[in-house]
Design a protein around this nucleic acid. Structure first.
Lengths: 330, 330
DNA sequence: ATGAAAGCGCTAACAA
DNA sequence: TTGTTAGCGCTTTCAT
């Protein structure tokens, strides 16, 4: 049995209230008393029962991290970032994702309703109406990691998708390319939408007409990248270079190239987005847009914890900037 | 404010005890009463306060997942597996890792002592004495994901490292190779130790003498794989093929090959272990040992939950078998 | 089959 | 500066 506050009180010959205060570093406890109690606490290996504490304060220092999926490097880095900050601040990280048999709303409602988490980090490519509604009802501090800096209602943190995409395409144009194709991400995914917009804007700014047939819909998966690339490279109007909306699809292009016996970057070039870990080990090294995912996680957690501590209450909207990483794939 | 059991009791015109019983599906509640209460609960969107419940029952349905690190695909898949099973059984997944500034013991103690988790999944490459001690003191259900099936004290689940390594090396030998080098993982890592043992045993079984200089110490990182490979391939006694203790180090060999202007598999072959996601996109496709990591996670969670539900109390020791994946890298 | 009441460990008024 | 006490939402004896 773990030491309780009661036993500690008995040992120290004070009331449990005093112990509680001492442990919570209340200023109005005599220094000597505080010292004694803290010494005793250490000796007896006292650990406050967090459940009891959360229960009575109605505050939980468990942070819920809800993601659309738990897969791949991107989410891993988010978790790592969140965990890092949580740990350093005495918070706990609880993760979940929308599973095959439930929507992201259910996941949120579950976390929120059960009173188990004191704050929520929601990562979602798109804030759909049902999610918005649910969130509006809740009074729990919340940070949204989103593809778009739109949600004025909640603190949100997002990647500069537009700028990142713009910079790759601009780079390609400056290298002399005019025939630049684009493989998009999922239709309703904000990251994807923003990246496509960046692509279009860059073309426009440099006076390059848009070739509709060079914009192929993908879904961020390797397979979709592969088939999109095959489609592009077997048409009679082949682009010189393909900008894939994420690295996974860029990898799909590599696969397609292998199948088609084409050589990157000789026969066609490829650029991606995300600069995931493996991209640097592709041969040739993939040109991509580096996204500091880990920082996305740490930032989100930090903002949330500030909110939970009432250290801040204005709604923040942070945009994380990206960086072009030039490889030899285009 | 969320609906409480009290309000529900008032609505149903029964005592809170009855409500509690009905909600917990106690057999001695009249069917009609139970129905009414459950209907009311649904209508009012009642959600039991988990904190309160855990607090009083002294049982938490939060499962703590402690890992040496939160990085890369391996851990991600574990988390995904655990989350999947937890979700399906109404449990919650709390993750943490030993951080730069704390040991894994501290992480465990923290989880355990605070009464916040009701069960623990501990993933560690090596059960060191301080960890053992800590675990022995604890009375919380526990499952260890380990590199070695040794811990008879706790339920444990591990990969068949020995068998996996043996099968790659056997495959290489049968292809006619005799000069097989090995890059090991960290010295005190059980996975690494078992894999090395499998390598040695295969050589022995096929009567191939061990060449000490062909066993180079690595640490599972790409860099260590790269430098080990460079060392091997620039010596005057070059092996024909390198079996790296994990895919990351195998990737390091690819990098080394590129630097040394050597071609895989023409100039030398490479095999790895883990068959991580990216390995299939390496060029040439890496020969590796596939480890069903996701299942490692689901299994661990399932065993733990059974334990927590008292559905099982015998100590289980599961070994997850691996599968040789033949690529074109050797 | 149901109700009354105690109590889990802790915090937070309110008193002293 | 410290103690007393109520109470958080729930489960669980013990009555009835």
């Amino acid at each position: 049995m773990a030491t309780t506050i009661k036993e500690l009180a008995k040992l120290a010959n004070v009331s449990i209230a005093t112990v509680s205060r001492a442990l919570n570093d209340d200023k109005k406890v005599k220094a000597s008393t505080k010292m004694l109690i803290q010494k005793l606490a250490t000796e007896t290996n006292y650990n406050p029962n967090l459940l009891a504490r959360s229960f009575v304060t109605k505050k939980s220092n468990i942070i819920g991290l809800v993601m659309p999926d738990i897969f791949g490097e991107f989410f891993m880095e988010i978790i790592r970032g969140v965990d890092e900050v949580c740990y350093n601040n005495g918070y706990y990280t609880m993760v979940t994702s929308s599973h095959s048999n439930r929507s992201i709303v259910e996941a949120i409602v579950d976390y929120l309703g059960k009173g188990i988490v004191g704050g929520l980090i929601l990562m979602t490519p798109l804030l759909e109406d049902d999610v918005r509604e649910t969130l509006e009802k809740s009074k729990i501090p919340l940070v949204v990691i989103s593809g778009k800096t739109s949600a004025k209602k909640w603190d949100s943190i997002s990647i500069d998708n537009f700028g990142g995409a713009y910079s790759v395409v601009e780079y390609l144009i400056k290298k002399g390319h005019k025939k630049i194709a684009h493989i998009t991400g999922p239709l309703k995914n904000n990251d994807s939408i923003q990246r496509e917009a960046g692509y279009k804007q860059a073309l426009k700014d440099y006076g390059i007409p848009l070739e509709k047939s060079w914009i192929i819909g993908g879904d961020f998966s390797i397979n979709s990248g592969q088939s999109a690339c095959e489609k592009l490279m077997t048409s009679n109007n082949r682009p010189e270079v393909i900008f894939a909306s994420n690295d996974m699809m860029a990898i799909g292009c590599y696969v397609a190239a292998r199948n088609l016996k084409l050589k990157i970057p000789v026969d066609f070039g490829v650029a991606g987005f995300d600069d995931i870990f493996v991209s640097q080990f592709l041969n040739p090294r993939l040109t991509s847009v580096h996204v500091p995912i880990f920082e996305l996680g740490t930032n989100a957690a930090q903002i949330l914890i500030n909110k939970m501590n009432k250290k801040s209450d204005k709604v923040q909207t942070i945009k994380i900037s990206t960086e072009l990483v030039i490889g030899s794939s285009c």
